[in-house]
Structures are given as C-alpha cells and as structure tokens.
Design a binder for these strands. Structure first.
Lengths: 106, 106
DNA sequence: TCCTCACATCCAAAAAATTAGATATGTATA
DNA sequence: TATACATATCTAATTTTTTGGATGTGAGGA
C-alpha cells in the first residue's frame, strides 16, 4: 500500500534542500558525528541540528547517541523505500482515470 | 556522472508538495489537460499553472500544447532518473571519507 | 476583426521554511 | 558537585514558497 501524500511530502522535502543533499553526500558509506558535519558545512550548530532532525524524521538517516556525541548514517532501507515511491509514480496500480491506455514516453 | 545538488534539489523539491503529489497521482497512466486537473484539485487556475511549471521544470512531467489546451503527462524517464538519484544515496562511487567500511543498516 | 476560451505570467499578500543566537538537556570528567 | 562539552530545543528575524486576483498571450470561432 502506498503511504499518504503527507508522508511522501515529508520524505521528498527532506531531499529538497541543498544543505541536506550535501549532508547525505557526506554520509555516503560512513557514519559521522554532528560536529564533524557542522565543521565541513560551516554552519551554526543549531542549523545543523535542524537539518538532521528533518533527515531523521524522513527515515532517510539514522542517528545513534554515543556518550556526548550523536552519530548519523544513511538508512539504506529508507532510501530504497523513497526510490520505490518515485519508481511507482508512472505506474497504475488500481486502474485510474477510466481505463485509458498508459501514456507513451515522449 | 551525478548532477549538481542544485539540479537534485530542483527535482526533489517538485515532489515535496502535497498538491504536486496529488497531480502526479492524477497523471498516472493518462494524459490530462490543465483545466481537468484544476477542477479535480479545486484550486485557482494561476495556482495550477504555478505547480505545473515546477513539475515540468523538474523533468518529471511533460507538457504538450494542442490548440487552446495544454496536456500534461508523466515523464517516465524523468521519474526513473529521479529514482536512480535516491538509489545512489547510500553508494560510494569514488571512495569517500578515508576508505572506511560502508555502514550496516540499523 | 472581434470575441471568447485556455493557459501563462505578474504581483502583492500570506504562509511556510530557514537561520542563528540564546537557552536547555544530558554526558563525561575533575 | 562543579565544570566543560556536544547536541537539542526555543525564539524571533529573515528568506523562500505559495496563493489568488489581475493581466497578457495565443488559438479558434462568429
């Protein structure tokens, strides 16, 4: 079953920001702590926290507390889920719009 | 090669809005004219035009003029491209962050 | 040509997202 | 316990996005 438009918007909104896309790029293949990301991006700590919350709430990023530090990493299954949402955009699952033929590409 | 963060943000931003997600849902499998979408969504014509421009500029939707009407449809290759962008979020292509091992899921 | 229709664009107001300093919370260390 | 540190949350200001009426454009039809 497809999630609600609210849930989808939450996920894609997390991806719709240049800073957050850079953060995801920094998390490729490796876990990183907040201060590390903050230094690389040269943004205030409160701003980093704001963006990390959006990324975590979307399910695209995991967070893990270790003592004083918070480590972030890519949530692979969250990313696959999001990719799947886009892949199904062109597909008709239940039979919409009065059984018209599917559109051809260009 | 990966597109710029600006280009990625443009694409995901198009998907990050409830109205635009509903529009994409309406275009599943069939082409629709602007007035048709406007009536279904119950929004002013200028607002619909605004959202359709964002969707077209992102490459997710095609537009076709036929006389007085403009028909919109899903751009399948645009959607596949966008899905691919998400799929590659967890993958390391060039070897980033000092050769650390890739993170495991959860 | 004049008129109407479908749609795009313009513009100012409203709403939402982002920023960054201040403050709060939780953890380790002395 | 007192302190320092890392991060989360709060808050107001700023920026960006969205809205919707007004206007412009281009395509038919009379």
């Amino acid at each position: 079953m497809q999630p609600s438009v609210e849930k989808k918007a939450l996920i894609f909104n997390a991806l719709a920001d240049k800073k957050r896309l850079r953060i995801l790029g920094m998390l490729k293949g490796c876990e990183r702590c907040a201060c590390d990301i903050k230094d690389d991006l040269c943004i205030p700590q409160s701003s980093l926290s704001y963006h990390m919350k959006i990324l975590c709430d979307s399910g695209l990023v995991n967070s893990r507390r270790d003592g004083k530090w918070t480590y972030y990493s890519i949530n692979r299954s969250g990313c696959l889920f999001a990719a799947g949402l886009i892949e199904t955009i062109p597909t008709v699952e239940g039979g919409c719009c009065s059984d018209k033929k599917e559109t051809v590409d260009e």
